[in-house]
């Protein structure tokens, strides 16, 4: 299709879309009843003070399991697509001069990034652990945790990154996280007759150990998100650094 024809088609479709969606949202009514109901029951029923976490991992926990497996499948797809082929060999990149080393990062960058690794890991664990109390949880904390290896890489320590977070470990963390969610749900089926039904002591709202099995699910999700993101990082770094670089 010619660009002009394509643009004309887009123009017609865009105007139609804008009119239809505009008239649809003109008389949209938010579902206040359901929102109020969720906000009212999470503390007395589940001892969870963060209603968003309660929705994610309890009220609509099965949906989140599905979402999590979308993520699992995409990371698996990246690992599968960018695997090393049998006929490929490591060689120097075409855009690099021979016999000349890449300059190392400056001392300021190294000190700053290495000093940040500890606080970032601690903050990530904090966010995962307090998912049922304050804003946060497995998804957010997992992403925060995954920035720690990125900092190590920025410090110019690619070799120590491969030692600290080897691929098999990240693969197992991701698989354990994804499977752990399903296992927590299945234990609910065995002990409380329904999938993802709470089967742990609920604790007291506001404590770190509250929310019953939601807290456990928080940890499995955090493990999966952190593992998956670090795995993506390792795969893409290997694609650009190792495959072409005769280290």
């Amino acid at each position: 299709m010619k660009p002009a024809a394509r643009l004309t088609l887009f123009g017609v479709a865009a105007v139609t879309f804008a009119v239809i969606v505009g008239s649809a949202v003109a008389d949209i009514r938010p579902n206040d009843w359901y929102a109020d109901f969720v906000n009212r029951v999470t503390v007395p029923e589940r001892q969870i003070t963060d209603a968003v976490t309660a929705v994610n991992f309890d009220i609509r926990g099965f949906d989140t399991l599905g979402e999590e497996f979308i993520m699992f499948a995409s990371v698996l797809g990246v690992a599968l697509l960018l695997r090393r082929h049998r006929d490929e060999r490591d060689g120097p990149p075409r855009d690099r001069a021979q016999g000349r080393d890449i300059p190392p990062p400056s001392d300021a960058v190294r000190i700053l990034t290495v000093a940040l690794v500890g606080p970032v890991v601690l903050f990530g664990i904090y966010v995962v652990a307090h998912g049922q109390v304050t804003p946060g949880g497995g998804f957010q904390g997992g992403v925060v945790l995954a920035t720690a290896p990125l900092l190590i890489y920025l410090a110019g320590e690619y070799q120590s990154l491969c030692r600290l977070a080897p691929r098999w470990l990240m693969e197992s963390a991701e698989a354990l996280g994804a499977g752990g969610y399903a296992i927590v749900g299945a234990i609910g089926m065995l002990r409380a007759e329904r999938f993802l039904e709470n089967w742990m002591p609920l604790g007291r709202a506001g404590d770190v150990f509250s929310g019953g099995s939601v807290a456990l699910i928080d940890w499995t999700v955090g493990l999966e998100v952190a593992g998956g993101f670090i795995l993506l990082l390792l795969i893409f770094l290997e694609e650009t650094l190792v495959r072409r670089d005769p280290a």
Binding site: V38, A54, V55, N56, E67, V143
Partner: peptide, 26 residues
């Protein structure tokens, strides 16, 4: 929709759409 320092039942925004969005971002 976080009831740590406000009593449950205080008018709060819809947590369901926020939960949908949160997972989707990741």
């Amino acid at each position: 929709p976080v009831f740590v320092d406000i009593p449950p039942g205080t008018p709060a925004v819809d947590p369901v759409v926020q939960a949908l969005m949160l997972t989707d971002v990741v």
